[in-house]
Design a protein around this nucleic acid. Structure first.
Lengths: 100, 100
DNA sequence: GCTATTGTTCGAATATTATCGAACAATAAA
DNA sequence: TTTATTGTTCGATAATATTCGAACAATAGC
């Protein structure tokens, strides 16, 4: 497939991050990535169609929450923990600490 | 005017809080309330129509972020800091610490 | 009671998002 | 090269949000 544009730390916007995290499906993705380190898109669909998941991963990617790299035919996603912590210290921790 | 329903601490939902805060207008309201303690609706409109502001205050109220009480003909709004901190420790602080 | 002030609610128009099937692109493996 | 696998992109539809004017409700003050 192809390469994605990821926003740099200074381009990450608080509103976009909060919006991306306000969706239950995306929040579940983020929680999983926080627990398991990294995962492919397929590993995190809950039986949802691929196009829907692709949409959610894109929102997370463009908000600067997730980094996606090519890995064979699949895409490996991981949380941009350090970048998020650099941009908004404590935000991700507070979100992840909330009961899920 | 009339009394409002405010969600109890246990009813406050992370997704709703994140969503409410993801809007620039509402985030600006929250920042102002954090700075100045409390304010009427009119004090925080940026020249926007009353009905639009009323909408945004409602979203903040129903998410559990803001408490509104009657004060003469006007409404006094204040942040539910303690309740938010109780529900999601550190979340509000992280949001407010971000450059605005 | 009358008037002014503050905000809510209604209704409609607009804009944004979510969802999903189908077609497509890229890699891997046989 | 052919086939399978993984996701993306497109297009259409449905669901939600935002915006704002106008009408309304509640209080304060004259």
């Amino acid at each position: 497939m192809r390469q994605f544009r990821h926003p740099s730390i200074s381009e990450i916007q608080l509103e976009s991050v909060l919006y991306a995290l306000s969706d239950p499906v995306r929040l579940a993705i983020v929680r999983q990535l926080a627990r398991n380190g990294e995962a492919t898109c397929a590993a995190l669909d809950g039986g949802r169609p691929k196009s829907s998941m692709s949409h959610h991963f894109r929102v997370l990617r463009e908000a600067g929450i997730v980094h996606t790299r090519n890995h064979g035919t699949s895409h490996m996603n991981e949380l941009r923990r350090d970048d998020l912590d650099g941009a908004f210290p404590g935000l991700l921790a507070a979100v992840l600490a909330a009961p899920g």
